[in-house]
């Protein structure tokens, strides 16, 4: 297997493998299509996971990172669970999301904005914050849908299911030190 990967030196395939724990299984893809056939979002994808893996193999980096496939993924793990070659497909999709976000290659999706808003709350408070997510992300990205959400939001609130303020953990500095170290080691901000 090592020799097989060595032939891929400097390719996109190698890059994806390096960035994904267990990613070396990628070279064993049979193109059987179990992944795409199992995917609840398959019909909404430009390229199903099977096609995307073929494109990775073909070194078609730009097209892969601009694909909508990653943003239609719901992390249901059917593809991973059913892959006869034990390829961690969902984790590879996560790797592609990270590369696409880092290089701002994504198109026509608010998923990166949602992810950013969500993790900013975690970085700041140590807990997620649904009301902040709703007001921050939705007001910015989808004001019309926000209005449709109104009645639901009110119902959630009256049933005590939505807090207006975030909870902050006590040792937030400790968590932030951990996060900063991770960002430093992984070379991202």
């Amino acid at each position: 297997m090592a020799a097989h990967i060595a032939e891929k030196k400097g390719t996109f395939l190698e890059e994806v493998i390096e960035a994904t724990p267990g990613g070396e299984r990628l070279v064993h893809c049979l193109q059987c299509g179990s992944c795409g056939g199992s995917c609840p979002s398959g019909a909404d994808m430009q390229y199903t996971p099977r096609t995307l893996i073929a494109m990775i193999n073909a070194n078609d980096r730009d097209a892969v990172l601009a694909a909508n496939t990653m943003w239609a993924c719901v992390s249901c793990y059917f593809c991973t669970s059913r892959c006869p070659q034990d390829i961690p497909i969902t984790d590879i999709i996560y790797t592609l999301k990270r590369l696409s976000i880092a290089e701002k290659r994504y198109r026509d999706t608010d998923a990166p904005a949602l992810a950013k808003t969500f993790t900013d709350f975690v970085d700041r408070y140590g807990r997620s914050f649904e009301f902040g997510l709703a007001t921050g992300y939705h007001l910015l990205k989808r004001p019309i849908s926000m209005m449709k959400m109104g009645p639901m939001g009110l119902q959630m609130f009256t049933r005590g299911r939505m807090a207006l303020r975030p909870t902050k953990i006590r040792q937030i500095e400790q968590l932030q030190a951990i996060i900063n170290k991770a960002k430093e080691l992984s070379g991202s901000k």
Partner: peptide, 11 residues
Amino acid sequence: ATEYFSQNELA
């Protein structure tokens, strides 16, 4: 959730 894994796996 799923959001942190989309941005930085180590973090």
